[in-house]
């Protein structure tokens, strides 16, 4: 009933939909960076959307299954092979006991999700199985996987239905990231405001699950932009004193005092999560109303997909 880690990959962690309701204790939500891809992978594997799965970063792990299981891959394509045979993402597949699943380097994108029928099984900590790397708890001993680790699997039906995700409902990743501007943008110099949407940015190597640090046009915030620390959210774009914006991601600190340039629309957070160091991106403005309409639209699409899957024979 286990998975053995033969090679861990660059940064492979156990995640679910995050540790909700603990930010008032200063605890980051964590959870899958590309949560939409993770939810889809779980549905394909016959799980609830919030089952614990593996988030895989840039270079994937090699895993051995000690029992038969249903698996599904989502997010970036790591050219996975199952006992040497190519295993395509966005469809469920049956793995026999003793099989080895090998993930290579991501072809494009940055993060992949491996869902296994029954989910990765471990006691939740503060209501979640997500790994909190900053405080070293949750997931598998609060850390990324290492060679020799053994992960338990939850109970799953012996034979889950085979499912393939139609191309039309697969996530599409954008390199134009939509930002909801904030009124405080008036505080920034006019050239900077123009540059935010006119010029490209590059993801620097100092980008991780806490935040994406971007290089490109630099911004100067006026003195008024300094403010007492206040809660921030995944997708908040902060401007630290060095002028390089940071997009806060799943492991972000719960509060911050830096000036804020805007907030990434939630439907585009998966696109940010799939940007790798060196990738370039642009920002475009979106209204809050439009961002929330897109959000609700996607939730409705996912709900009807879920119903369709449950009805399939």
């Amino acid at each position: 009933m286990t998975i053995e880690v033969l090679r861990p990959g660059q940064l492979t962690t156990v995640q679910d939909l995050g540790r909700r309701g603990c930010q008032h204790e200063g605890v980051p939500e964590s959870g899958s960076m590309d949560a939409y891809a993770a939810r889809l992978a779980n549905l394909l594997a016959g799980n609830d959307e919030g089952a614990a799965l593996l988030e895989i970063t840039l270079t994937g792990p090699t895993l051995r299954f000690t029992r038969a299981a249903t698996v599904a891959l989502g997010g970036a394509d790591f050219g996975a092979t199952l006992d040497g045979t190519l295993l395509a993402p966005w469809r469920s597949a049956r793995v026999v006991a003793g099989a080895t699943l090998e993930l290579g380097a991501a072809h494009d994108g940055c993060r992949g999700y491996l869902a296994v029928g029954g989910g990765i099984d471990m006691p939740p900590v503060l209501g979640s199985r997500s790994t909190c790397l900053a405080a070293a708890f949750g997931g598998h001993h609060g850390r990324a996987l290492r060679a020799g680790d053994v992960l338990a699997l939850g109970a799953a039906p012996a034979e889950a239905p085979r499912r393939t995700l139609a191309a039309a409902v697969r996530p599409t990743y954008r390199d134009s990231i939509r930002i909801i501007p904030v009124p405080e943008m008036d505080w920034f110099d006019p050239d900077g405001r123009h540059a935010l949407f006119a010029e490209p940015f590059t993801v620097t190597p100092r980008s991780d699950r806490m935040g994406y640090r971007l290089s490109g046009p630099r911004f100067a915030a006026g003195a008024r932009a300094e403010r007492p620390s206040s809660a921030v959210a995944m997708g908040t774009v902060q401007l630290p004193p060095n002028g390089e914006p940071i997009v806060l991601m799943a492991d972000h600190q719960t509060t911050g005092g830096y000036p804020v340039l805007g907030h990434v629309a939630s439907v585009d957070l998966g696109s940010v999560a799939q940007l790798r160091p060196g990738a370039s991106l642009r920002f475009s403005p979106v209204s809050l109303d439009e961002a929330q309409r897109l959000y609700l639209e996607r939730e409705r699409a996912l709900a009807s997909l879920r119903r369709g899957l449950l009805q399939s024979p």
């Binding site: 909700r20 603990c22 930010q23 008032h24 007492p228 620390s229 206040s230 959210a233």
Partner: peptide
Amino acid sequence: VRDVVAGFTTVTVH
């Protein structure tokens, strides 16, 4: 409402 977080001068509702 998922969480309510205090700042020095603010209350934020996730």
